[in-house]
Write a protein that binds this DNA or RNA. Structure first.
Length: 172
DNA sequence: TATTTGATTCTT
DNA sequence: AGAATCAAATAT
């Protein structure tokens, strides 16, 4: 079942937790890929010094200021793409980064690797995941999975926000 | 206009 | 431990 708007409008930490076990579906021509989300990170609001939205609206991050349920895709280090899902109401810029998935039983760890595996690039930035036939999200199992919390990766500059346990993983 | 940077990954 | 690589953010 496709995830709907109210799901994405929840608090970012809630969405980050509840996306674990859900499926990211990618359709490419005749082919279809089904990726189970196994690792996420929350990037919340204007205060979070690790968030792209921390210093206000820019060309890159403007999607985070839009409606929940859209894709925020950006290029990092000139080489890799990162895929995020926008959360919360329009006035509250926030997103959840998908850091790891499982496709056909194979773990793909790292946001750049996830995008490479699913052919996600900047052309998909700002697409509405609720109303799209090439990329969308579906609910996982109804039972609550066991979840691990950890500090986020690659944000040493984020001062008092760098040790927040806003990284979530499915416990194996 | 010029310089720096980065929610990473791969090679040495 | 260091390099790759570039669009966008920040500094000038």
């Amino acid at each position: 079942m496709k995830l709907a708007r109210p799901f994405f409008e929840q608090k970012t930490l809630t969405v980050a937790r509840e996306l674990l076990g859900c499926f990211l579906i990618r359709r490419l021509g005749r082919g279809m890929m089904r990726a189970q989300i196994i690792e996420t990170e929350a990037y919340g609001g204007l205060k979070d010094k690790a968030s792209h939205a921390h210093r206000g609206r820019t060309k890159r991050n403007e999607v985070m200021f839009g409606s929940a349920g859209r894709a925020y895709v950006y290029l990092i280090y000139g080489k890799y793409y990162c895929f995020n899902v926008v959360t919360e109401k329009k006035s509250s810029p926030a997103a959840v980064l998908v850091r790891g998935v499982k496709i056909d039983g194979q773990k793909i760890i790292g946001p750049g690797r996830v995008c490479r595996a699913l052919s996600i690039n900047a052309g998909l930035n700002n697409l509405d995941l609720l109303n799209h036939h090439e990329l969308w999200l579906e609910r996982g199992a109804l039972v609550r999975p066991k979840i691990k919390k950890m500090p986020r990766v690659g944000i040493d500059y984020a001062e008092e926000y760098k040790n927040k346990l806003w990284r979530f993983l499915l416990a194996d």
